[in-house]
Write a protein that binds this DNA or RNA. Structure first.
Lengths: 209, 209
DNA sequence: GTCTATAAAAGGATAGAC
DNA sequence: GTCTATCCTTTTATAGAC
């Protein structure tokens, strides 16, 4: 059980090693200044050797991000598909600034035109969105959210706030992302409960008027 | 009045032209793939000529972003330093995807270590934050928000949601950023009013329990 | 101010040998 | 699998003419 079946054992281990080193280099220099050459050197490969495992810089970075998602998903989301689970993912990101930076910069790079990672990020967004919708529905089931809320909209706002807070946090590591997300979540929850009790349509109000 | 005083007239006009062309190229290729050579060519300058105006790629992009901020600030923020003004800025961004992409990618690139634009983005954030705090205070004055809210926290969340929604929007141009921001704002407002009326501390609640 | 020319360094990607 | 060698492109920066 120490090695997986024959021919793939080494390749798999090497791939994992590359992913980890790639993350290390990105964390130090940023996605923009991390070069295949440097990653290859640190793994003890030539640049062409690196290309054997990942056909391009984009493939490599996608793989790094995918590995992160799989790890986080297994560790936080799946055991607890609620807002609390979501918060644990964000809180954990605090320990891996390199990943956060890679995610923001690479997804921005991929957002324009026909970039090789464009589809990857679209699909990833769908996935995160669905997960978040589940969290909202769980909160509705528990009564924290009212029944009339638009779960897709809340999910979008939640993800947006989390992404934007990560951008802020990259510039200033002292900000408390979790506290801010909790405040936002509580606001949406309160609003949704009032909608249910008072008027399903009203979303704005000027009480002192 | 057609030209500013003598020696600077041409330099100023040329700089403005370069900024506009740089934006055009970034909009097409993304900040990552826009090259000084191509920008210079399209302006009708050599690369060395371009470098005469902006000493580096970073300086040039900072200048593009600064010009945008000045324009938007004059057009939307200053006439209306409220949440509505904030929304008009966001809504306007819908018309300049290149700028949005440049902002997200370049700020992410600059967020790591000692990047030449790091300080620029930190200062810019301070500025946007202060502007947003003013919007929150205006909403408190009008009674839309309760008096006990943490305006800095609301401002951070508002900016985060706006930034994150722009990331989403870059990947999927069909999402309605303004509607989502309004929902979030309404939630925070409602929460803040309840805090004032019921209990200044409570931010979460499970009413059906 | 603007050009041509040019340098040295670095990036990504690929062909083909072992 | 892994390497060497090579290609093409980008970047910054400089020297020196007009």
């Amino acid at each position: 059980m120490t090695s997986r079946r024959g021919p793939y054992a080494k390749g798999t281990a090497k791939r994992a090693e590359i992913l980890s080193v790639a993350l290390e280099v990105v964390a130090e220099k940023g996605c923009h200044n991390a070069s295949n050459r440097e990653i290859a050197e640190r793994v003890g490969l030539s640049q062409a050797g690196l290309m054997h495992y990942f056909g391009s810089r984009e493939e490599l970075y996608m793989a790094v991000l995918r590995a992160r998602d799989e790890r986080d998903s297994a560790a936080y989301w799946e055991p607890d598909p609620s807002f609390a689970g979501f918060l644990r993912v964000i809180e954990n990101n605090t320990r891996v600034p390199g990943l956060v930076q890679l995610y923001v910069e690479f997804s921005a790079e991929a957002s324009l035109g026909k970039h090789p990672a464009h589809e990857f990020f679209r699909e990833r967004y769908e996935w995160v969105h669905q997960r978040s919708v589940e969290s909202v529905r769980a909160a509705q089931a528990s009564g924290e959210f009212g029944p009339h809320i638009d779960a897709d909209l809340v999910a979008d706002v939640l993800i947006a706030a989390a992404d934007g807070l990560q951008q802020q946090w990259l510039l200033d590591r002292s900000i408390d992302m979790v506290a801010r997300l909790q405040a936002m979540w509580a606001g949406m929850a309160t609003l949704s409960r009032l909608d249910a009790e008072i008027d399903p349509v009203t979303a704005e109000a000027t009480p002192t008027e």
